[in-house]
């Protein structure tokens, strides 16, 4: 195995995952601020970025003989064949671990915020549709009765 080339590839991967973390953080702010026009833009950038990561992943898998090896395995291999790279690999392991946690957390936060965004807009749409849709006409002995379904609420809960 060409450990020198592997170091180059992993270096690229760390940079790419770090960029991905920044893209996820940017997306979080966009979701929070309901900037839907920017949302599709950041999503496109994320998809492009994922493709780049996948390409580098493929290069690494090719280098490791078509098998996905985790970094602990690679360190063990290095101990036998190229101990001069162990130090670098240990550093990469720590970086990958940190990035993994941070990106996963942002991923979950974004997913949750988006689910609530969808839920919020669904409810709002239903409220408006309720107002726009024709009302049932009720008749009493005095004739037609008009009843508004809209409830005025002034309850505010600020976190």
């Amino acid at each position: 195995m060409d450990f020198h080339s592997l170091m180059d590839i992993m270096n690229k991967e760390i940079v790419l995952y770090a960029d991905m973390r920044e893209l996820f953080a940017a997306k979080k702010l966009i979701i929070i601020q309901n900037e839907v026009n920017k949302l599709s833009e950041i999503d496109s950038r994320i998809i492009e970025h994922v493709k780049r990561i996948e390409k580098v992943n493929e290069e690494r898998i090719k280098l490791t003989g078509g098998t996905h090896l985790n970094i602990t395995t690679l360190i063990n291999l290095a101990r036998k064949k190229a101990p001069q790279y162990i130090c670098n690999l240990e550093r990469y392991k720590e970086q990958f671990s940190t990035l993994s946690k941070e990106i996963s957390e942002l991923y979950k936060e974004n997913l949750e915020l988006l689910e609530y965004g969808i839920s919020l807009t669904d409810k709002s749409v239903n409220i408006i549709i309720g107002v726009l849709s024709p009302k049932k006409t009720n008749y009493s002995k005095h004739g037609k009765e008009s009843v508004s379904n809209v409830v005025l609420s002034t309850i505010v809960r600020v976190v």
Partner: peptide, 18 residues
């Protein structure tokens, strides 16, 4: 709101890509 709905739904699909 419909614009939000569409944007959010499209964005949700991106999570599968990731």
């Amino acid at each position: 709101l419909i614009k939000f709905q569409n944007a959010f739904t499209a964005s949700a699909r991106v999570f599968n890509v990731c």
